[in-house]
């Protein structure tokens, strides 16, 4: 050991932050999910698996012996996952050409384009979301222009639909896809593309066999960065979706607020965590399997 035995102490601040800030709250949430709801919020320290039971099943309100799947919770889960998958795909489709455009500019102008990508982060998420609301509402900018141009006769109902939620989430999370994609393209050796053309590869073949495999790490990182916050999104579905169909984040908030059932809220939060981890593992195992061999 000698003098080196104390070196680990240099990691201590990082370890303390990780344990306290990351694991601490998680442990509390996990413990709360096995307690009983308190009076008007909070918990009482009585062990109970009722919260976990209620995540998946429900006792019929009218016949307590009849136990069925909790289809409401499962439907909300599925909506969150499905909207998040769609958001991730939209961000990837829009993010790829954007990142490619930036990566192929001259090295001097690239910081400028990257800078433009970061501009949305300067404004609070809530304010940007309300700005979108202003644009897509019935007498908002888009409908006004469409009505004026005569393309439509009635305002399009865009606000308070799943379309609005998707639009909002894609807008919010797009930079999180563009930046890792750009990072991957930036490292790419452009002469490989020339080599592809030299070998009579078509444009499609070059894209499919050279560019996409090379930027795959960027897609993986970007997808993770988009999918995880999307599945827990709270503000966007609330403001743009009008709260008429819940997503996971709203369902969890409901339990901690008006539902006054903190253990159920904790169990739902834990389940969301588990779903995200499982989805990540599956994703990385399928998409990321051959990643190591191909990296240049």
């Amino acid at each position: 050991m000698g003098g080196n035995g104390w070196k680990w102490l240099l990691c201590a601040p990082a370890l303390v932050v990780l344990v306290l800030a990351a694991s601490g709250p998680l442990v509390i949430v996990a413990i709360y999910s096995f307690l009983s709801p308190g009076n008007m919020g909070g918990v009482t320290w009585e062990f109970s698996t009722e919260a976990w039971f209620r995540v998946f099943f429900r006792r019929d309100i009218f016949e307590p012996d009849l136990v069925t799947w909790n289809t409401a919770n499962l439907a909300i889960f599925w909506r969150s996952v499905w909207l998040s998958i769609q958001t991730t795909v939209i961000c990837a489709v829009l993010g790829f050409p954007t990142a490619w455009f930036i990566a192929t500019r001259s090295p001097r102008s690239r910081p400028f384009w990257l800078f433009l990508i970061t501009i949305p982060f300067w404004t609070n998420l809530l304010i940007r979301t309300f700005a979108i609301q202003e644009m897509i509402r019935n007498n908002g900018t888009i409908n006004t222009v469409l009505l004026w141009s005569g393309l439509i006769e009635q305002p399009l109902q865009m606000l308070f639909t799943d379309f609005a939620i998707l639009l909002g989430m894609a807008y919010v999370f797009l930079p999180l896809m563009v930046l890792p994609l750009y990072a991957a393209m930036d490292k790419m050796n452009l002469s490989l593309i020339e080599a592809g053309y030299d070998l009579y590869g078509s444009r499609g073949a070059v894209l499919w066999h050279i560019i996409l495999p090379l930027v795959k790490p960027g897609f993986i990182a970007g997808s993770i960065l988009v999918f995880i916050p999307a599945i827990g999104a709270y503000v966007t579905p609330r403001v743009l979706g009008g709260g008429q169909s819940l997503m996971l984040g709203n369902l969890i908030a409901l339990q901690f607020g008006q539902g006054r059932n903190w253990p159920l809220g904790s169990a739902l939060a834990m389940l969301m965590l588990i779903v995200v981890v499982v989805a990540l593992v599956i994703y990385l195992r399928t998409v990321g399997r051959s990643d190591g061999e191909r990296r240049v």
Partner: peptide
């Protein structure tokens, strides 16, 4: 009045079902 937890749970269940 604030309803007892078991009643509030039923209300939440109906509410969630409506918003699923």
């Amino acid at each position: 009045e604030a309803c007892p937890q078991e009643v509030n749970d039923i209300h939440t269940q109906i509410w969630t079902e409506m918003l699923q």
